[in-house]
Write a protein that binds this DNA or RNA. Sequence first.
RNA 1: GGUGAGGUGGCAGAGCGGUUAUGCGUUCGCCUGCAAAGCGAAUUUUAUAGGGGUUCGAAUCCCUUCCUCACCUCCA
Length: 463
Amino acid sequence: MRILDTLSTKEQEILAKNIRIYLCGVTVYDESHIGHARTIIVFDALRRYLESRGCSVNFVQNFTDVDDKIINRANTEGVSALEISTRYIDHYFEDFDRLNIKRATTYPKATEHISDMIKLVQNLVDLGFAYVSKNGVYYSVSKFSEYGKLSKKKTDDLISGTRIGIDETKNDPLDFALWKFADSEPMWPSPWGNGRPGWHIECSAMSLRYLGEEFEIHGGGRDLIFPHHENEIAQSEAFTKKPLAKTWMHVGMVTIGGEKMSKSLGNIKSVRYVLENWGPNVIRLFCLSGHYSKPIDYSEDLLKENLIKWRQVETAYYEMTMADGTGDTSEISSIVHECGQEFDSALENDFNTSLAVSAFFKLVKGINRIAASESMTTSIAGVGLPEFERMSDILGLSVQKVTEQEKQSITDLLKKREALRDQKQYQEADKIRDQISQMNIVLLDHKNKTIWMKKEKILLDAS
RNA sequence: GGUGAGGUGGCAGAGCGGUUAUGCGUUCGCCUGCAAAGCGAAUUUUAUAGGGGUUCGAAUCCCUUCCUCACCUCCA
């Protein structure tokens, strides 16, 4: 497949069978929001797609668990930084498991790799790329001639554009901290004095440990291009003398009312909140319905639109699983063939999930069209369902399934309803339908049979 | 001020030199005892920010004007 590489601004062919991916995760000082979710959903889908093509994926996603914001929050609450980071890592897994994110191969934490970082900093000092100053150890940007290559910035422009007060303890305003001296917890001893790691060094150290040199894909939100990824490149490449990653992939921002969603602007929608109201599948559809590199604007209207689409997916699934009889499969075969090709070629071409999702919906519509014409059969479902499931697995969508027990009681109730309908006792029959709907089961009467579907309960469905 | 990405029908969103993207919405039908579920048809004035240009042909390439967003500080 081809991915547009941020560094070269050209499409890179991803050919390897073993793919190593490093995704910059979250700083665990508060609830995750829908912007974090988008990046993670995109990479989850990418990973699922690569695996479906037979690749083996080593997926590493870090947790930044030492940071000023964590410490501030700990101080405010009067608890330890560890308590804060542990709490939000727990919350992270609760939220993202619900979002049907496959667990990464490894979730390294910064605090568990302090010695790796110290070694890397020592190497950078030894190589002359870093120096010890009054407040810590700094990376000397001027020593790395390629600085700015990822974010397309010239160091002169960066200096003139500096918006914060110049730190006199640094040799150069562009230099950034590798190790910051500190005399309160959390802190660790180092050859230069007690302190804490700078933000960027963790990713250089941990990607090297878990993925080695020059791995296939490095990703994150677009807002990480500068300074975070630029600094990672400076650190890692000064040390290894090799490209940090073969391909850089950056996910666009989630905006709200056209403005970036962020804590500082106070316009965030937490993953918890959105999950509570819309459920995981609607969120995934929403996040995958545009190209990953472009921004998407959060709105309840758009979520609502995706909910309507999600209902069609659920219907298609149950129409197929509840089919019987045999029949001509030529129509479904050509739909499957066409949509399957469109789906794959969309993803091959810079992971265009927007097009892939629309191909998936062509399949869904096709299935529902056949069902509506009273010609869905087991043989047709036998052709449609595998492709339907292949696509939903890649997109990470998951229709609610029923337990055997539920199935039994639904079947019993349906028999009663059928009997009542035969006797034209519709009021009584509708009572049973209401009773069934309490179990989130929706009935669909076909000419000769009744289909039932377990639909995801979605809070804002009625609104 | 610098850098980057964009401006497509009521809305969302692909295409990136020549064929209806697609979806949602809306209207009218169909199916149904009814329906919370679906299906069909129609619909978006020349849909491609404005103005030039290249071309037999441009939403797609070039120039230009305007606008939006992001990054340049922590940020997914």
